[in-house]
Amino acid sequence: MAAIASTPRMRCLYIFNRDGVCLHYHVWLRPLTTLSPHQDQKLMFGLLFSLKSFTAKMDPVGGNKGNLGAPNLPGQGCSFHSFRTNTYKLSFMESPSGIKLILITDPRMGDLRDALKYIYSNIYVEYVVKNPLYTPGQPFKCELFNATLDQYVKTLQ
């Protein structure tokens, strides 16, 4: 029982910028990899893009929604915050500047909206954006970011 309770529930984290460049890809536990990381990231961004235009069109509340696939700025139109399959749960957050954070976890994880907000504002902004050596829009490798992220994610188990 103890072994089951301590199995990590995090699978991986993706960070994309508004152009679809994968700034960061972090893996904690991924037993199955069918695609190369690059292919996988492209497919993930494509899925999020289409899901967003899907939810924007499906939105039962908003009035004028335009055509399916009409471009929406970050924050415009009805977006989504998570989906769940039988093997994983994907939580999604988009910042006003179009930075997308995607956290893949075990399907039994609860609501991770606050966790994503925390990762964005207290880890990504603090350790990556405020790093003077970081060029915006470029993939990053930042030790302090990884260490803090690992530490924070452990509290989410």
Binding site: L29, L43, T55, C78, H81, T85
Partner: peptide
């Protein structure tokens, strides 16, 4: 569109045996 996204979601699974999206939580539905 839903049909294809359902299929893609199972391809992106980190664990084997995925059958696709069961629940999608959007902002308003």
């Amino acid at each position: 569109l839903w049909h294809s996204m359902h299929a893609i979601s199972s391809q992106l699974s980190p664990v084997g045996g995925c059958t696709g999206i069961e629940l999608l939580e959007a902002d308003t539905f």
